[in-house]
């Protein structure tokens, strides 16, 4: 018996190894998403939109219809596709730079309108692709390329808490959760519920995933896990923030 790598059915094996750095959390988020899509058996009607930044390296990741846009515009593009063809399952995939900084207006507007899409935002506390600059999600005191003495909340504000904001501005029927790549099974459950909520037409679905960036954090494997398991959850609480009536909690 030949032993094969275990990959979700909707992944493209011919583009692996994928383009993300060693130890990047995107691989884990996309594994959880791939497994959720497989379990729901919706590969033929998912449209996957990735944003600019590291997340665009997912453009050839799946055997799904995929579109790549810039600066948070993945949300309006997927919204347009979903409005034109409500039978689709639209997934807007972005990083914290695209979703909370330059593209924040799209996240806020689409959440307020209650678009029937699933937005997935990967939070690694900095801008990865451009070399690790300070992002809206950088933790107080965290050193980055542009905050070499640590982020000072006095001058740069406090980290953006996206799911808390989305949960506040969305109507009933929205599903909002924050998962972590430290717990891939839980993350998969959240992503699956976010897809199911969209398919049921209840409302907006938003999942933030706490992720890893050993390249720009300059951490070894132990420190990388410590960052996502201990340091980040002190500020970014993991769990479901808003669950529609009729859908069971975790």
């Amino acid at each position: 018996m030949t032993i094969e790598p275990v990959m979700p059915k909707c992944w493209r094996a011919d583009t692996k190894p994928h383009k993300f750095c060693p130890g990047c959390g995107h691989g884990l988020v996309l594994k959880a998403l791939g497994e959720a899509i497989d379990e729901l058996d919706i590969q033929d009607r998912v449209v996957f939109g990735c944003d600019i930044g590291c997340s665009l390296l997912a453009w050839d990741f799946f055997n799904l219809d995929t579109v790549q846009t810039h600066h948070g515009r993945t949300i309006p593009v997927i919204t347009g596709l979903k409005r034109a063809n409500p039978g689709l399952v639209g997934v807007a995939y972005m990083g914290d730079g695209g979703g909370y900084a330059i593209g924040a207006q799209h996240l806020v507007s689409s959440a307020a309108r209650g678009e029937k899409i699933t937005a997935i935002l990967v939070n690694n506390t900095q801008y990865g692709m451009t070399g690790g600059q300070m992002a809206p999600t950088t933790l107080p005191g965290q050193k980055t390329e542009t905050s070499p003495y640590g982020r000072d909340p006095e001058t740069t504000g406090t980290p953006t808490q996206g799911p808390e904001m989305v949960a506040t501005i969305t109507a009933d029927g929205a599903y909002v959760a924050r998962g972590t790549v430290f717990n891939v099974r839980q993350l998969k459950t959240f992503l699956k519920k976010a897809l199911e909520n969209q398919m049921a037409g209840r409302g907006y679905s938003f999942v933030e995933a706490l992720s890893l960036c050993p390249t720009n954090w300059r951490t070894n494997a132990e420190e990388t896990w410590n960052m996502v398991n201990k340091v980040m959850p002190e500020y970014f609480k993991v769990g479901e923030l808003k669950v529609p009536a009729g859908m069971g909690g975790q």
Partner: peptide, 13 residues
């Protein structure tokens, strides 16, 4: 290890 590998490089049977 199979679950946490971001590259699906490990298979456990």
């Amino acid at each position: 290890c199979q679950t946490v590998c971001p590259d699906s490089a490990i298979t456990i049977v």
